[in-house]
Design a protein around this nucleic acid. Structure first.
Lengths: 198, 198
DNA sequence: GCGTATTGTGAATTTACGTTCACATAGCGG
DNA sequence: CCGCTATGTGAACGTAAATTCACAATACGC
């Protein structure tokens, strides 16, 4: 029989396995059989550690949330220059997407919207938290006088997402053909020019 | 019994009904029962006109493709000023998304990636066709000397998508709370400034 | 009007999953 | 070493959804 492990450990393993499955097959392709196989246990064993598939999905969304916000925290800790912060954040966001193929699909996934309302609300809070932090970086830049003052920080934050989002789609849809990094660099150049003003 | 109609008519009705279902529940929530109910026939009748659900999905993707490209064609026919063209295209793109709630989710949908490879390729062709046309508008602007010459038209096209895409996500995820139009106007102002150059 | 191909119907079938359950077993406190 | 509780297992169950099929009814060519 498989080694018996503590529920805490198993929950961690299951959540990570689930994230891996989502990364390969999307949230729609997430099934307990696949998770169990990755963990090395039998499907029904999942229910010893989670109330059901929904709870596993919650855990996955929590992990994604943490990874996204970690990126923001890290770049903020590393430098105080707003441009350097945003530039690095963009790089890491794209790295996260590349490493975790389905991440952008997650935000859009039908399961988020068709599932329990609490799930959509949590996703909304996550995205808004991310946007708020980006907007905060922009606002600090304005207060320091290095970013144009006539730009709404919230708008800039959404536009910042817009640098990565469509590129991620294209990369996905083109099976990796589209050069995300090259586009991001060029787009960043233009976007940062805009923030700096004439 | 329900009135009998020609296969051509029924295919049209079914495709439109399917699009309506996708608009409300996403591609994952698309089921033949719902389509049949909207059309006013019984589920099994669908199979008189389509080989299966997959073919219906193909038809839906075809409709979406047409609507997207129609927008481009229309704005190009209406005016020749590149800024006016892009501005109107942005407006209509957002209108399309608002009218058809799930359109942005469609591009990202797991079913596109997990389904038959031909489906992803078709979606890729659609997006690239759209991008090519936008890039063409930008290039014309450069040739006319009204758009900065040191911008790659392809990059500008992807960035243009980035004006609408994240806003659409937010609108969706916030259940309509987020003000897409206001954001788009502000984002367009900044983006068009960037294209114009100093 | 008549017959035939086409289209609509309801029931049955199949498949894929999530979930439950009775039972087995491992690890831990005594 | 004993026994109890937590964990793992395989089989079974329920459900939802796609698809098939035998049969019925409609519309169209003659």
């Amino acid at each position: 029989m498989t080694q018996k492990l503590d529920t805490g450990i198993r929950q961690e393993q299951i959540a990570q396995a689930a994230l891996a499955v989502v990364a390969r097959h999307g949230l729609a392709g997430l099934n307990v059989a696949a998770i169990a196989k990755l963990v090395g246990i039998v499907p029904s064993a999942i229910y010893r550690h989670f109330g059901g598939k929904d709870e596993v999905v919650e855990a996955v969304l929590g992990m994604v949330r943490e990874r996204l916000l970690d990126n923001v925290r890290n770049v903020c800790a590393e430098t105080s220059d707003p441009y350097e912060r945003l530039h690095r954040l963009l790089e890491r966001h794209l790295a996260l997407i590349r490493a975790n193929h389905a991440l952008p699909r997650l935000v859009f996934s039908d399961e988020i919207y068709n599932g329990p309302p609490a799930r959509r609300r949590m996703m909304f809070r996550t995205v808004r938290a991310y946007l708020d932090k980006v907007a905060g970086i922009v606002r600090e830049g304005q207060e320091a006088g290095v970013v144009r003052a006539d730009i709404e920080p919230a708008t800039a934050a959404v536009m910042f997402l817009g640098l990565a989002q469509p590129a991620a789609i294209l990369w996905h849809i083109s099976s990796g053909t589209f050069d995300v990094v090259a586009h991001a660099e060029e787009a960043w150049r233009l976007f940062s020019e805009t923030l700096r003003g004439a």
